[in-house]
Design a protein around this nucleic acid. Structure first.
Lengths: 175, 175
DNA sequence: CATCTTGGTTCAGTGACCGAACCGACGGTG
DNA sequence: CACCGTCGGTTCGGTCACTGAACCAAGATG
């Protein structure tokens, strides 16, 4: 949020967190980043976010150390935004939020998360019930659930239909 | 959010959840409700939120079934807003968000949560490490942490300095 | 040289948020 | 009964963020 005004007197870590990631679109940008989206244009088409807002969010997320802007080719100069550890640490929050949304508003699951090592579906906190351990995000495999549109319009959504590990860059077939 | 426009094409439970609780102030209202705040005025002074915004949030949260408006005295007619199960289900999200905020921006913990039955501090997901079980919110005892202002201005913050169980109504000493 | 892609910036319009003022129902006090 | 205080709002003008569309620039591509 940080809507010009901050949650001033709030002595609360929740409020502080919302200062950073509470604005509109911000958490969805982080979600996409965890899914492996890295490039401006991919965020743009996948989220349907106004360009100016996206630029602003990427900037503040970078400034907050949640994303890192790095050059991935010199000519033409192109940058990508990669999640940092601080961004990865938002995974439990996003997971909890997603579970709540599905539980109370969704129907069929839209995306399924599995422990890539053993194939078990993740527990509510991102742990593997079979292995009994926390699963590092790179070992989480995401695959489409039954509720997901099987033929989405934008190339990023289409790329995300293929099972893939979180954090690994998404590969659009546009090229 | 639901900023006039919704996260239209987002096929995602996270986006759906944010539609409901993603607007500014909303999650803080829910947090306060879990802490035991129930009355309009108490939300008002504790959050420092504009009156109109508070009224709007309470209305949508009620409409969404996250809070329940109920009359607690007939004359003068007074209503209180109590969290429903759906609201309680947001606890893991708020907990994760709070931990993230403290981890990355906070210093000393501001509030400590313990399993009232055994006195053990809660784990990251609201479970009791000692008992090995999920702790129902009513059995969570909240007490002020070292980082908390020991003499806050508003009566609600002052009431929340006393150890109390979550969900139980907060008792301001204003009366 | 014309055009396309990528990654933005600019701008006008709209809607959300802000703070302060006002309001109505009721209770208590003198 | 007049008056004041409390509680839970609504109203209103001003400001700021978000939106969508247009524009722009650097560099490849043909």
């Amino acid at each position: 949020m940080a809507l010009g005004k901050d949650y001033a007197a709030q002595e609360c870590s929740i409020a502080r967190a919302l200062e950073v990631v509470g604005e509109r679109w911000t958490l969805l940008v982080v979600r996409d980043a965890l899914y492996g989206v890295r490039r401006y244009n991919d965020f743009l088409v996948h989220l349907g976010i106004p360009r100016a807002v996206l630029a602003s969010r990427l900037q503040t997320l970078t400034a907050e150390g949640i994303l890192e802007k790095r050059r991935y080719q010199q000519s033409p100069p192109r940058d990508e935004y990669v999640v940092t550890d601080r961004g990865v640490a938002l995974w439990p929050t996003l997971r909890a939020l997603g579970l709540w949304g599905r539980e109370h508003y969704g129907g069929a699951p839209l995306r399924i998360f599995r422990h890539a090592v053993c194939g078990t579906e993740l527990g509510a906190y991102g742990e593997c019930p079979a292995c009994g351990t926390a699963v590092p995000l790179g070992d989480v495999e995401m695959l489409p659930g039954p509720g997901l549109d099987p033929d989405p319009a934008d190339p990023v959504s289409r790329a995300l239909l293929r099972p893939k590990r979180l954090l690994t860059p998404v590969e659009t077939d546009s090229a």
